[in-house]
Design a binder for these strands. Sequence first.
RNA 1: GCCGGUGUGGCGAAAUGGCAGACGCACAGGACUUAAAAUCCUGGGACCAUAAAAAGUCGUGUGGGUUCGAGUCCCACCACCGGCACCA
Length: 1029
Amino acid sequence: MSSRRQYPFHLIEPKWQQHWDTQQTFKAWNPGEVLPAAHPFAVRHSLSGPVAVTQLPPKYYILDMFPYPSGAGLHVGHPEGYTATDILARYKRARGFNVLHPMGWDAFGLPAEQYAIKTGQHPRKTTEANVTTFKRQIQSLGFSYDWSREVDTTDPGYFKWTQWIFLQLYNAWFNPETNKAEPISTLKYPADCTTEEQKRAYRDSKRLAYVSEAPVNWCPELGTVLANEEVIDGKSEVGGFPVIRKPMRQWMLRITAYAEKLLNDLDGIDWSHSLKEMQRNWIGRSEGAEVDFEIADCGLRIAESGKRIRVFTTRPDTLFGATYMVLAPEHKLIDQILALATIKPHVNGEITAKTVNIVDASGKSVGIKPLAEAIEVARSQSLDLIQLSSVGEMAVCLLQDFGAFRFAQQELAKHGTDIIRYREEVAKKSDLERTELAKEKTGVFTGAYAINPVNGEKIPIWIADYVLATYGTGAIMAVPAHDERDWEVAKKFNLPTPPVVASPQMEAFKIDDRITRGWREVADPISRERIGYTLDGAPFVEEGVAVNSANSEISLNGLPTAEAKAKITSWLEAKGVGKKTINYKLRDWLFSRQRYWGEPFPIVWKDGHHSAVAAESLPLQPPDLTDFKPTSTGEPPLARAKDWVSLVDGSVRETNTMPQWAGSCWYYLRYLDARNGNAFCGKEAESYWMGTGGGKLKVEGSRLDTAAAQPATCNLQPVTPGVDLYVGGTEHAVLHLLYARFWHKVLFDLGHVSTPEPFFKLVNQGLILGEDGQKMSKSRGNVVNPDDILSEYGADAFRLYEMFMGPLEMVKPWNTKGVEGVYRFLGRVWRMFINDASETEFEQAETTADASKRGELLKLIQLDAAIKDVEATPAQLKTLHTAIKKVTEDLDAMRFNTAISALMVFTNEAMTWETKPVSVLRSFLQLLAPFAPHIAEELWDKLNGGRATSLVYAPWPAFDPALLVEDTLEIPVQVNGKLRDVIKIPATADNAAIEAAAKASEKVKLFIDGKTIKKLIIVPKKLVNIAVG
RNA sequence: GCCGGUGUGGCGAAAUGGCAGACGCACAGGACUUAAAAUCCUGGGACCAUAAAAAGUCGUGUGGGUUCGAGUCCCACCACCGGCACCA
């Protein structure tokens, strides 16, 4: 503040921001819109009136991740990406594109709601105030957004369509045959679905938006459930509160149906490698096999589903080494085991039900019969009728010898108490404890055994919480010799660890050697009989060669892992006890929240069934509340609004709301046609901005060139860019970006959008750290407020600095001194154009002038007398065209920092010119304009005597390579790779002349005289290297 | 542990396999000024040497390799940052 202002940015910046605003300079034109003839875009492209798609130039859609307008206001991280996209938007306008560059507000969210709970202030009020602040701050940076397309996710005109898209999901199913989403009306019902009730249940189970009663991530502190993606290390992403598992009725979105597409289509889009990897990891595809293990007969089979346990494994080749089995504590089979162990059976005469569903020992229903008849059936087989359960008049009865039943039940019951206790312990643990803290493996034996299908061995069934109920089948076969976790458990509980894979390097599969390879003889008689050896030391988890893996029908011995997998899998398939399977880590998206400040579901409930509200009745507005807390019964806050919830026909509204991600899943589509009241987006607008349609001009460097460079693996048909460039932070790698791709694909399948992928090219800006190199945070006190920087250095300097810090994608620390550097640069640019004396006069006038009149005083500032309308010298043209080339290439590659340095190089050079040709300065201002638009417009205006149209649509200067050709070349000469001299030589010199000149150099001679030249390299016009011996 | 990224002056950084450190910050010296600020000019990787210089040697995280030539390509390792993490 103490120093003199480099140039009057405080007047220039508001002046041009206002100018752009009133002229609607940055309005993007949709096909069919009426273009005023005077608009600079119309002038540039010779258009006016209603324009057809075919008349419009090619589009360029450049998008920022819209912000959540928090109470803290903008921080310097936000404008980093916004500046980058703004520079490119301005550049692309100059290159002749119709540029769509919008901004909006992701305004539903927890902070406003929590503030509301504390203060009673309605979240809408808080949100509106925050949006106002954000908008003011963003606008003060001079970004070229088309504000006529501003969206706000909390605006009923917006969330009407969020709800509408939800209904699209609700009314669709994923058809595996066509591999896409289809309207629910195309669903075919299985033969046993006959009644309306059955059909409804089937239909509801197939919808892309469905209701599920399952354990979910419940965060007591936030009073809501969270998606898997919102839980980090067992704590909520927002606030870091503990999260526990709790079964609740919730809305889910079937994103898993799209797992394969979400994975494969990454190949065709231009995202950073690491971001794609993050998505791939999150989707977590793994190939393996499902294998069925029969449960060893304990006399207690009761249902078909309980007869076998299905496991998932990625290493079916190790099946011969499975020595036990582990079920997740939540596995439903455990319930059956427990039920059997604890039921108090009624036998024969004790049964009171009128009818009986008889099941045999294998769990099959033998038939439903009146009680008397059922008893007769039992008597005829010398068995007992044991009642397992009853509903009303009907009982389910097992046909079995009661004595044997009681014995088996007692056996199970011995372990039953262990199981119950273990399950209770597990349930008490939070996710955090179950992962981070539970380093030591735990588990209990169930008392039951399974049969290994490859060798008929009886292996114990355990339950342990290191097996997750939600992945695969919730059950595994444990192969301790070849799996870290199984190894730990086996060691802890003294279970055998027979090896079935050997390292090929060690050739350990040569059985004779195995003892020296770390295998030792086992004492366990079962394993000894089968294998005779167990692995010592540590598990061998890599791929290798199968050993000890044979039965009378199949042998894997000697096969490398990949082949062994294939062989055993087809054997299992032939036997009908297994099949090749693909599993994903990705879970369905938990889509409901127990909150107020979100989109209400357009769903009503009646008699336990849900149905959609009519699309015509949308938007469904949330009720007005004064108390935003959940109800005392733990229901969501919407349940407080009794009038809102209850409808006249006796049905009630869904009281959950949608998560914050809903609004951001499709906002980029709303921008295309933001004020459309009849559709989420008009068809023509969608296909012009997102598709390949439209565009009469062939523009060099257009997106289509980029699309052509797609990798061969791309399987997107048709190849479409969608959003041409999307810039935002990595924090959305697996949340917003995965969800939005999912919604887009559903909309694509249903014919609402024309591209399978929404964001063709995506770039992550790197985090900006505080001056101390630490993450900016209030508690560290290192937060930089853009408003402070702006008032001291102006928006142009701020923009310039954000880009000059380093490559966009990199993490980099803020340094206010660096802002001064680029600010000084702008000062030099200013002085390159401006007459000193007139500026002094302006400054004096300004000190006395009325504040409102100061803008007018800019007129006092005169151009420097050295600026003349003369032909540029070759040297001046060379300086200019060097800059044009560098800035153009750097902008195409998003290298903003080096582009700015090229502008500095030009300025340093041009400052020294005695005469400055207008034409050269004009081109320079065009290069500068995307970076520092305000000063560029002001100087452009002065240079053109105040008569020119806005610089924004002036065609980008072309560079002429002919002007860059040098007469004299400076060629470095190396001897043995070390620089010894630089020779000057005419550009026309051929290699022989260069060689002669190099050898003639005195400095070079010192190093080559008296030595033999072994090799001589000449890179034409570049370099000479002489290798001597 | 797994996956990805990054290591270059005092600092932010730049360099199609071809003059390492462009551009900027900080710093030092000078000009202007009564003085300061601002501005303009000059300097600058380290070492060695010197009155000063020239010349020379070393130098892009570490160790190897390929090459006439490596910050850049290959192999092995180290450090930091980000993501995932009992995913069978």
